[in-house]
Simulated assay, not measured.
Amino acid sequence: MALYGTIVNGILVLIGSTLGLFFTKIPERYKETVMHGIGLAVLLIGLQMALSTEMIIVVLLSLLSGAVIGELLHLEEGLNRFGEWIGSKFIVRQGEFSVSQGFVTASLIFVVGAMAIIGALDGGIRGDHEVLITKGILDGFMALVLTTTFGFGVALSVVPVVVYQGTIALLATQIESWLPEAFLNGLIVELTAVGGLLIMAIGLNVLKITQIRIGNLLPSIVTVAFIYYIYQLF
């Protein structure tokens, strides 16, 4: 079953998020220090991913094009409205963070990265779900910690996790006949690097060093595929 690993990953995120909701009454000074720790760890994760790039020009052009598209579409505002709408349907105390912040932060951490892509490809091509199950365990613990501060929005990240990884897994059953292995491997590297920079932005926002509109940079995750393809042509 190509989707087995993805389903397990999603279930573990929901379990972690649910458990995290029971620990939202932690004193603020503890939560602040924990969030600083999370912010530093997220920065490290993003940096490790970003440094994997072999074509910095592809990463740069992807971010620039993604930023333009995101600003034109006002994605950040749309995500905030979506988060407010979801929040209005549930009686959940969010503290200083909105539902959309929890949703975007958790989605990027769980979705973007080599484990998500490689694990989904392994599940679709070889029926091997070990990578995604391992990722699911890590995501579950991260979801628990994130939910203690960001609240219910973290649980909503299960939707992009399942859709994104599930789509890759299903396409992977045919992907080897569509794309050369070398191209696919290179694309994964650059996609991971772009995602790493977005995750670094999350870390900086969590540490309150910056206020980057991450939602408006999300299209770069898509544009990197087109730019990498064009770059390969030349």
Rank of each mutant, 00 (worst) to 15 (best):
I168D: 00
V68H: 07
V42Q: 03
G186A: 08
I109F: 12
S98M: 10
V154T: 09
R81G: 04
G37S: 11
T149G: 05
L63T: 07
A41M: 14
I199S: 00
I137Q: 01
V42K: 03
I212W: 07
E71C: 05
F23L: 09
T24E: 03
G153L: 03
H74V: 08
E96G: 04
L51R: 15
L44D: 01
A182K: 15
L47M: 14
L138I: 15
F183K: 10
A2H: 13
V163W: 14
I230M: 10
G20A: 02
I133S: 06
V159H: 01
L132R: 15
Q101S: 01
N80Y: 13
G37N: 10
I91Y: 15
A169L: 10
F97P: 04
T210S: 10
Q48Y: 15
I15W: 11
I57H: 15
L198F: 10
H129R: 14
V58E: 08
S177D: 07
I7G: 11
L21I: 14
I91G: 04
S17V: 08
L63M: 13
L79F: 15
K135N: 08
F226V: 06
V68D: 01
L207I: 09
Q165R: 14
I227A: 08
G203S: 03
T134V: 06
F22P: 04
A225R: 10
V161S: 12
G102V: 08
N205H: 09
L187D: 00
G136F: 15
I56H: 06
Q165T: 10
I175H: 00
A193N: 07
T148K: 13
L197T: 07
I214R: 02
V92W: 08
G196R: 12
L73C: 02
T148S: 10
V34Q: 11
T105N: 02
R29S: 06
T210P: 07
V99Y: 14
V42A: 00
I175A: 04
V111E: 01
I91W: 14
F110K: 08
L43C: 02
T210W: 07
L3A: 00
E84F: 04
L187C: 05
L138N: 03
I168K: 01
I214S: 01
G16N: 08
L207C: 01
K89H: 12
T148L: 08
V68E: 06
T210R: 07
R29Q: 14
A116P: 09
L204P: 01
Y228I: 04
N80C: 03
I118W: 13
L198V: 06
E130Y: 11
Q232I: 05
Q174T: 09
F141C: 06
L73K: 12
E130L: 15
T53M: 01
G5Y: 12
